[in-house]
């Protein structure tokens, strides 16, 4: 019993340590968003975009293009909710394949998952707020 308890604590410390050492620039709240976002990512995005955001061939683009993520930061919520189509250039490669959106995600879910991809695959250090997502979704084309 005690043994189980101790290993539990130890794993927790290790996990926290790991999290913070890799991303020591992130605030606790950003970390929380990213952690919840990771679960949503695995569930809704990983099949196409890969566990490390590496994409798949020329079918599914990687999510590791910092420049793309920064320049299109305002469009990301619309991409996640409504999908996208048409030619885009990511990491210097052309992609042209429709992405279906995930309309079932709530606004806060969108904030979580975007925080995850932009902090873990990109180099952003801030999180998306729910208000920001609502604002972005008003301007979807």
């Amino acid at each position: 019993m005690i043994y189980k308890y101790l290993t539990g604590i130890l794993t927790l410390i290790l996990a926290l340590n790991l999290l913070f050492s890799c991303n020591n620039k992130l605030s606790v709240q950003t970390m929380q968003y990213a952690t919840i976002g990771q679960k949503l990512y695995v569930q809704h995005c990983q099949n196409c975009h890969g566990a490390k955001g590496e994409g798949l061939g020329k079918l599914y683009p990687p999510l590791t293009d910092q420049k793309f993520l920064e320049e299109n930061r305002d469009k990301l919520a619309c991409i996640v909710k409504n999908g996208m189509a048409g030619e885009i250039v990511v990491n210097g490669e052309k992609f042209n394949q429709a992405m279906p959106g995930v309309p079932s995600l709530t606004n806060i879910d969108v904030a979580y998952v975007l925080t995850y991809i932009t902090t873990y695959f990109g180099n952003s250090t801030t999180h998306f707020t729910q208000e920001e997502v609502i604002q972005m979704l008003k301007d979807c084309r």
């Binding site: 990983q46 099949n47 798949l56």
Partner: peptide
């Protein structure tokens, strides 16, 4: 080809 669920993972693995 436009399968949104398990196929991308399956094809990534078969690759």
């Amino acid at each position: 080809t436009h399968c949104p669920s398990i196929c991308p993972t399956m094809q990534r693995n078969l690759l």
